[in-house]
Design a protein around this nucleic acid. Structure first.
Length: 778
DNA sequence: TGGTAGTGTCATGCA
DNA sequence: GGTGCATGACACTAC
């Protein structure tokens, strides 16, 4: 069955890829959704968006680059819808599930925007559907993971019609010729569009392996980049779309931004912008805009080398989980840890997989590789030194290192709240000038407080209250003093049953006993005389023997019954199994210590039986026998004090006999006490073992929850940074130029207003806000 | 022969 | 102070 699935899957994929490569549109969704849900799941997983809606064909006609991506009105519509859904999703703290989106690669006829295909063949993203995967359509193809969104697309006619007839063999040959030209020039097309080529070659393998994954945000970042790129039809290189009259292409007017914010943010009504830019409703992009300026707008939450955890701490956590996995506590732990989505920070830190797309720099970098060399330079450290936007040489948003997070968000508000100090510690270490949090007011304080509390909990590893309770419990349970009260099993079961006979033997008188003696006898009957009492068999033997002494060896096995009651059921012929302490027997009884066979008791004579019992008598029994004590050691030991004294008064006993009787009673009681003590010790140890296992189980569970929380936090961060990036990227000054992220920043105040403020001012505010939490902690 | 586990016993403290 | 109980320490035995 598996092989059949594999065969079908691979075969369909290969066939579809082939069709796609020759230009035949294959919309797998139409087949999978309606007809073959199992097959769909085989290929796509439980829920995924697998469509090859070639939006690029809408714009990429045969002459390809004749239509700019931004000329399509759907773009704004989709962007607004997506932003709205993302913002709405921000108030939901959800633990995402993994979803695999497989994208078929279609070779663009010619002049395709190479930079528009940064995503690899496989994109792993959240099922929340709020993260977009920029498909090969240069941004028009928006988040189809949103429920029903793809339907909207189709309703709007966004789904490209089949283009099988558009591409002829000559066209394909022409593409190859142009391609070879680049190769002849020393620049293969794959240099400019690595992922494009990579996808064509490896998509089949990737679909099967599911290994190559991209962070969704990188797709968005690439989308934002690619939107501003035009493509050289010959080389496939991309270059910034700074063309005259481009106001209808790339510029999103401020009005649109405001509308967008109103639609996306609940505080949109109060949104306001500085007056100096309020009049910029007709943004006209300038030709003189330095290339790459807009592309410098990078993720304010983007961390270059995201190492949100202390490595040592995470290793400890990992080892704990590994221990629990060894204990087979919960197999879901491994599922979480090892099947974590690519964006999972823990999976990155744990597995240290080199290809894990957790490194957002890498993802964005790769996305930029698809564009052009200019884009490439944006993400290189050298970019910091490039003159950008006139005199501005500061590029604090360049995520070449981990300062990017704090450079824009500082350590306040979102950055500080989304990431506990433990998480962004490296970012703090390398943080340069702290910049204000442009999204400080994006979330209301209540939500931020919740997140902050959760961060504290995560930072502490456990709930401090619970941790203190655990600590107290451990303290109180230290040692063996917790025994009886803490371990209810310590004095139950075998003890009660074993003491029943002794208590019954004294029940006639103990019921009439009063006060102290009654309490003593009751306590004795309840938890005393463990295993030391003579059972009926012993009593019969004793009476048959007619004289003295309990049967310590019989009772010994009864006492041992708490260890395994089913094995040693107080049978005399099983004595050879256990210990045979004969040192307490009379020297005369130590001779001929060979035990009779099991059948000896049945067939043997009374003499042999007497010999056998004689051997089993303890030293005190022998002494009592030698001293002619007129009652059994069992009575001596187990009778309550009053009954015992009454019994002694009935007989005329010598001083030596009385002394021996008292010694026997003392030793017998102490013997039982010792046995109880040892039993309690054993129970305590067993209970402690159970407690340790429970605690380890709890720890593993908490670690799993921690992983999920952090993953969700990371996704929220990505969404926020994406929103910031999109909104900021659409802002234009009076000249239609985008604002430099090194000079301006968006700031969301607590009252819901949105401000575009200078970076310096944002820095100051960020510092102020950073001091507040420190003061609070003090 | 030495180590270990089980057991009994003694001494001691506590209630 | 006697009694019962708990427990550490020791000795002994069997394996």
């Amino acid at each position: 069955m598996l092989s059949l699935k594999k065969y079908l899957t691979e075969g369909l994929l290969q066939f579809t890829i082939l069709l796609s490569l020759i230009g035949v549109r294959v919309d797998v969704d139409t087949y999978l959704t309606s007809q073959l849900p199992p097959l769909r799941e085989i290929i796509l997983g439980p829920s995924s968006a697998y469509t090859q809606t070639q939006f690029h064909n809408l714009r990429n006609t045969l002459d390809g680059y004749g239509i700019h991506p931004k000329s399509i009105d759907l773009d704004n519509y989709f962007t607004a819808r997506r932003l709205l859904s993302q913002v709405r999703a921000l108030d939901r703290f959800q633990v995402p599930t993994t979803e695999v989106n497989a994208w078929l690669v279609h070779r663009d006829p010619e002049g395709s925007v190479s930079g528009s295909q940064p995503s690899s063949g496989l994109t792993l993203e959240s099922s929340s559907g709020l993260q977009d995967v920029t498909g090969p359509d240069n941004g028009v193809r928006e988040s189809e993971t949103e429920q029903g969104f793809s339907e909207d697309l189709e309703d709007l006619g966004a789904v490209a019609p089949p283009v099988s007839g558009d591409l002829t063999k000559e066209d394909i040959d022409l593409i190859d010729i142009l391609w070879r030209q680049d190769i002849d020039l020393g620049a293969g097309r794959e240099i400019f569009d690595y992922s494009h080529r990579q996808k064509e070659q490896d998509v089949d393998k990737d679909v099967r392996d599911g290994a190559e994954q991209e962070d969704t945000w990188s797709g968005e970042g690439a989308e934002a980049l690619a939107r501003n790129l035009l493509v050289d039809g010959e080389t496939g290189e991309s270059f910034p779309a700074q063309v005259p009259g481009g106001e209808d292409q790339t510029a999103l007017s401020l009005e649109e931004c405001l509308r967008l914010l109103e639609a996306t943010c609940p505080f949109g009504e109060n949104a306001e912008f500085p007056a100096d830019i309020s009049s910029i409703t007709e943004a006209v992009p300038s030709e003189s805009e330095p290339p790459g300026l807009q592309n410098n707008l990078l993720s304010p939450l983007l961390t270059g080398t995201e190492s949100p955890f202390d490595l040592e701490q995470q290793w400890q956590d990992l080892m704990s989980i590994m221990e629990m996995q060894a204990m087979e506590v919960n197999t879901s732990t491994s599922e979480i840890l090892y099947s974590a989505p690519p964006g999972d920070p823990l999976s990155t830190n744990y597995s240290l997989a080199p290809n894990t797309p957790i490194n957002q720099n890498v993802s964005l970098h790769q996305a930029s590789l698809g564009g052009c060399s200019q884009d490439f330079s944006l993400f290189s450290p050298e970019a910091e030194s490039l003159p950008v936007a006139g005199s501005s040489t500061l590029l604090p948003l360049v995520p070449s290192n981990s300062t990017s997070l704090n450079s824009t968000f500082g350590s306040t508000n979102l950055a500080g709240l989304f990431f506990p100090p433990q998480l962004n510690g490296t970012a703090n270490d390398t943080a340069g000038p702290e910049l204000p949090d442009p999204l400080g007011g994006l979330l209301d304080e209540a939500m931020l407080d919740e997140i902050s509390l959760m961060d504290l909990a995560i930072e502490e590893g456990f709930n401090p209250v619970q941790a203190s309770q655990l600590e107290e419990e451990f303290d109180s349970d230290s040692g063996l003093s917790l025994d009886s009260s803490h371990s209810p099993s310590s004095l139950s079961g075998s003890e009660g049953s074993s003491s029943s006979s002794s208590s019954s033997s004294s029940s006639s008188s103990s019921s009439s006993s009063s006060s102290a003696s009654s309490s003593a006898s009751s306590s004795f009957s309840e938890e005393g005389a463990v295993g030391y009492s003579s059972d009926s068999e012993t009593l019969d033997l004793e009476e048959a023997e007619g004289a003295v002494g309990y049967q310590p060896e019989y009772s010994k096995f009864c006492r041992m019954s708490y260890q395994d009651p089913s094995q040693l059921s107080c049978l005399p012929y099983l004595e050879h199994v256990g210990h045979n302490h004969t040192y307490n027997m009379a020297p005369s009884a130590l001779d001929s210590a060979d035990l009779p066979p099991p059948g000896a008791l049945k067939k043997g004579s009374k003499e042999k039986q007497a010999d056998f019992l004689d051997k089993q008598m303890s030293r005190d029994e022998h002494r009592a026998r030698a001293m002619k004590i007129p009652f059994t050691n069992d009575k001596i030991i187990n009778l309550p004090v009053e009954e015992f004294n009454e019994l002694l008064s009935k007989y005329q006993l010598s001083e030596a006999q009385l002394s021996l009787i008292r010694d026997i009673r003392r030793r017998g009681k102490n013997k039982m006490a010792a046995q109880n003590c040892r039993k309690r010790k054993l129970d305590t140890i067993l209970n402690l073992e159970r407690d340790v296992e429970d605690l380890q189980r709890d720890k593993a569970r908490l670690l799993r929850e921690k992983v999920e929380f952090l993953r969700s936090l990371r996704q929220m961060k990505q969404k926020v940074q994406s929103l910031y990036q999109e909104v900021f990227g659409r802002l234009r000054d009076e000249n239609g130029r985008p604002y430099s992220p090194s000079q301006y920043a968006l700031q969301y105040a607590g009252d819901g207003s949105v401000l575009l403020i200078p970076r310096t001012l944002a820095d100051q505010q960020a510092r102020r806000q950073e001091r507040k939490p420190k003061d609070r902690r003090k």
